[in-house]
Write a protein that binds this DNA or RNA. Structure first.
Lengths: 168, 168
DNA sequence: ACGACAAATGAACCTCGGTTAATTACGACG
DNA sequence: CGTCGTAATTAACCGAGGTTCATTTGTCGT
């Protein structure tokens, strides 16, 4: 199935798609690192997730309703990925029960991830969220800037600097 | 399909399932109001979502991995709902392509909701989140306690009281 | 090796929400 | 009608993180 997808090669800074695009796809990250982020109305940027090799990513609203994407996807390192239009997936799933169930697995995993993130944002301090990120993605601190780390955690780079100092 | 489910009648305070249960189900709320919440390790309670008539709810992790539920579901008003074991859903979906695609729709909607909540938690102040809640569920303030409202927003009842005063 | 620009740190000040505790409002019920 | 229990409000104090701006540390490109 994945072999029907198109191979994508991105340099650092290249976008897979932009917030507002409607031709969104599912991306299977083969190597490198993608960053999913959105721009708020006040112009500030927020990082939704880091997507290292092995990740699968796509915009929910695009899959469910065909709405334009709510976030952008950009390469943070030279990256290769397989891109598969949602429409193809959904159409084929209408007749392919194996794929339909694979989709269920994908969506379930996605929901699970977001459920965990919701918990983190509601219950954990910025310091705890930072510790958790380092624990689950030990190499991430060396692969992205402090500003990106802070943005993912939901604080400013200055606050992250303070936290690092607190942890000595 | 839903007609295969079992009808559930709950009084205020009755639980549909508890955090840690493994026999979780999907619930279709027919009337009344359910509250999804979890208990943190420090004993504090956090409200994940309010589920008025028409809502569908279930635990992601239970569906995907068969793991125990990560949250509890309790009636906040006398409530009737249809309960459908996940296992039944998942099993039938293996051979029923229509159901499999319905599941895709359900999970997609769920993911979309969580995506929006993530955005709210990352980008909005407590005051904005309160305003948004009132906007999307105008009657909720009259149906649940101030403490529950505050818990959903992610603040203390005192802070919510302050916010209400600020809004005059 | 040098300068240039971005990234990271640091400091000073402010705001929001948490904590604790006291006070008030509003039941249900004898 | 008064009382007990719960919910909601208010106040005083504190700490985490935001904002702004200055300073240091990198890291490149030539």
């Amino acid at each position: 199935m994945v072999k029907n997808g198109r191979k994508i090669v991105l340099e650092s800074g290249d976008h897979a798609f932009m917030q507002g695009d409607s031709d969104s796809k599912v991306y299977f990250v083969k190597s490198g690192l993608l960053k999913a982020y959105y721009i708020r109305s006040d112009g500030k940027e927020h990082i939704k997730s880091f997507l290292p090799e092995g990740s699968i990513i796509g915009s929910m609203v695009a899959l469910v309703d065909g709405d334009p994407c709510t976030f952008s996807l950009v390469a943070s390192e030279p990256t290769t990925a397989i891109a598969l239009p949602y429409k193809v997936l959904a159409d084929v799933a209408q007749s392919d029960i194996g794929l339909a169930n694979a989709l269920v697995g994908f969506l379930g995993t996605y929901g699970k991830r977001k459920e965990q993130r919701e918990y983190q944002l509601l219950s954990l301090s910025a310091e705890d969220r930072f510790a958790l990120l380092i624990e689950t993605m030990p190499d991430i601190a060396d692969r992205v800037s402090q500003a990106d780390l802070a943005s993912y955690i939901g604080i400013t780079p200055q606050a992250l600097s303070r936290i690092k100092r607190r942890l000595k």
